[in-house]
Design a protein around this nucleic acid. Structure first.
Length: 147
DNA sequence: GCCAACGTTGGC
DNA sequence: GCCAACGTTGGC
């Protein structure tokens, strides 16, 4: 089980779009480091969904339902890949970037260290703390995952 | 809207 | 291979 964080601008593709759609092809990544992270995702990995630019915050939890494949938006360019994600649950409270920056235990998170990376790994302790800050309990998580 | 950070491109 | 120019991301 790996933990990740993906960014999306809510004005372009927000959490509510994702919920409404029920599944998303995570394509359009054009950065090698982010691409490598997509390639490392395995089915069942947990993915924090982060809104960038407008009210920056972690807003929900998703999971990987299809491992990497050719990015369908550039079928002739084998460099780029996509994965498919499904929403698991919305946070009770969004966890803002300001909160994350204010939390000493999160001072080394890639979100802060590499502010421009759009797909990044998250450590287990970081993941658990962010879930806690979102008032998202592991019990609620397992119930949600079973539904 | 501005600007810092940083990845990419292209000239040499 | 170096580095200046340029484009993009994303916080504020």
């Amino acid at each position: 089980m790996n933990y990740w964080l993906v960014k999306s601008e809510p004005d372009t593709y927000g959490w509510h779009h994702f919920i409404a759609q029920g599944r998303a092809t995570w394509d359009g990544v054009r950065n090698y480091q982010a691409r490598n992270n997509l390639k490392s995702m395995t089915i069942g990995d947990q993915v924090l969904f982060y809104h960038s630019v407008t009210n920056p915050a972690v807003v929900g939890l998703a999971t990987v339902v299809r491992e990497y494949f050719q990015d369908p938006t550039v079928p002739d360019d084998a460099r780029w890949v996509a994965v498919e994600l499904e929403p698991v649950m919305s946070f009770e409270k969004t966890v803002t970037l300001a909160q994350i920056k204010a939390e000493p235990m999160l001072s080394t998170i890639s979100l802060i260290k590499q502010s421009r990376l759009s797909v990044m790994p998250v450590r287990t302790d970081e993941f658990e703390l962010i879930l806690k800050l979102g008032q998202t309990t592991s019990e609620a998580l397992s119930i949600s995952a079973e539904e």
